[in-house]
Computed example of a mutant assay.
Amino acid sequence: MVAKRGRLDRFISKACQISLRQVKPLLAQGQICVDGQWVSDAALQIDSFSTISCQGQLLQERQRVYRMLHKPVGVVSATEDPIHRTVLDLIDGPAIPGLHLAGRLDLNSTGLMLLTNDGRWSKRLSAPETKVAKHYRVGVTHPITPDYIQAFAAGMYFEFEDSTTAPVILTIVADRVADLVLTEGKYHQIKRMFGRMGNPVLSLHRFRIGGLYLNGGPDADRTSPLATDLAEGQWRDLTASELGLFVD
């Protein structure tokens, strides 16, 4: 889903069904426009979000889309599923080619999800090296004792991935409720970590990604940009200031 880059002349040749040799005079005559600029460089690198026209004819125009959604229980984090409703099924309006999930939540988990058609953005957001923090509120079966704090901070080794989890910040909120901060997202990581402690998870809700909060969030810094309240199943586009929270 990453927007692949390529040469402008090859794109024009394919889009207009002409030879590369025929593209050259069009460039020399100033007949090709990319993102509002007349260009003459045949090797100019373009991608699927470049707006391109040739001799006044629009060949490509695709806008980047960035959305947030409040996922309910019972909705699967996938683009399609033969049994359950998917996150994309909650998005009304015309279908957007390439729209996908930037991160996932389990079927019975709830909370903040991000969607985009910009593969570079979602890849960067999910990459471990970027260390974008995800915040969760977790309800469990048995009381959470202070020793959990050190166990989660030290990390846990999982044979499935043959790796140890990065440090997780655990804050005890109530007898059976904790807030967690993760900078990675291994398969069912939170449930597996509590499972290692012999304490099954009953509820899992993600309320924050980076500086973006869902409905304020229990630890919201009120001086930071906050997300507009979204009921379960609702979505909206990110504002420019919210999108700026994820720009290096």
Rank of each mutant, 00 (worst) to 15 (best):
R5I: 11
R7L: 04
L8W: 04
D9F: 05
D9G: 09
D9P: 04
F11E: 04
K14E: 12
K14Y: 05
R21I: 15
R21D: 15
V23G: 01
V23F: 04
A28C: 03
I32W: 02
V34G: 08
D47K: 07
D47M: 09
S48P: 02
T51I: 11
Q55R: 14
L58R: 14
Q60P: 00
R62G: 06
Y66W: 11
V73I: 15
S77R: 02
S77V: 03
E80Y: 10
R85G: 06
L88N: 07
D92R: 13
L101D: 01
D106P: 08
L107K: 05
N108H: 15
N108S: 15
S109Y: 01
T110M: 09
T110I: 09
L112W: 12
L115F: 00
N117A: 05
R120K: 07
W121R: 01
S122Q: 03
K123G: 11
L125Y: 07
E129G: 04
E129F: 01
E129H: 10
K131W: 03
V132M: 05
G139Y: 08
G139M: 09
A153T: 08
T164G: 09
V168W: 02
I169Q: 12
D175H: 06
A178P: 03
V181E: 13
T183S: 09
T183K: 11
T183V: 13
G185H: 02
R192K: 12
R192N: 09
R192D: 09
M193Y: 07
F194V: 00
G195I: 02
G195Q: 01
G198L: 09
P200Q: 03
H205N: 12
F207Y: 15
R208F: 07
R208M: 08
G211D: 01
G211C: 01
G216E: 12
A227E: 06
D237T: 00
T239F: 08
G244D: 02
